[in-house]
Amino acid sequence: MMKLSPFKARHQNEEMQLQITSMADIFTIILVFLLKSYASGAVTVSPTTGTLLPEAHAGDPPVEALKLEISKDAIQVDGQPVMKLNAFAFESADVQGNGISVVLSKALEQQRHKQMLIAQSNSSVKVDARILVLSDQKTPYSTLKSVLASAASQGYTDFKLAVVRGD
C-alpha cells in the first residue's frame, strides 16, 4: 500500500482490500483436479526410493496383486523386507540348485497361506496367481530368474512386470 502524497495522506482512506476471489477460484480448480487424480488411481504402485523401474512405451494399467520389489539391497514382499541382497545378488547358500531362493520362497509361502485362509472364510475371494514385480532396471536376469522361480514354486505364475510408461 503506497501513500499517494504525504500531505493528503492523513485525510484519505488508506484501507485497501486485495481482490482474491479469482485466486480462490483458481485454487478450487487446482484442488479439484488434484483430488480427482488421486481418486482415479485405485491401485497404488510406488517403488521405494532408489529403485528405478525400466521404461517402456506400452503397458497395461496396473492391477491389484501381491507386490514384490527387487532393489539393489533387498527384496520386499507386500512392502515388508524379507531378505537382503548383495548388489542384486542372492547369498549363494540361499539359492538351491533349481534357482529357487529358500528365504524368498518361505516368505511367499506365508503370503499364499494368508490368501488361502481368506479364500476359505470368504467365498468371493479366490486364490490369486498374480504377482506384481517391481524390479530395478539394473537387476541382472539371474536374480530375476531366481525370484520368478521362487514365486512360481508357490503358485504365483502370472507375472505382472511393472514399468514406467514413457511418452
Binding site: L34, T157, D158, V163
Partner: peptide, 28 residues
Amino acid sequence: FTVLITFMLASASFLSIGIFDAGISAGG
C-alpha cells in the same frame, strides 16, 4: 487451500506405471 495444494503436490506421484504380462515357459 494453499496448505492443501502444497501437501497434495508434495505427496503426488507423477510417474505413470504400466504393466507387462509375462508367463514362464514351464508351468503357468
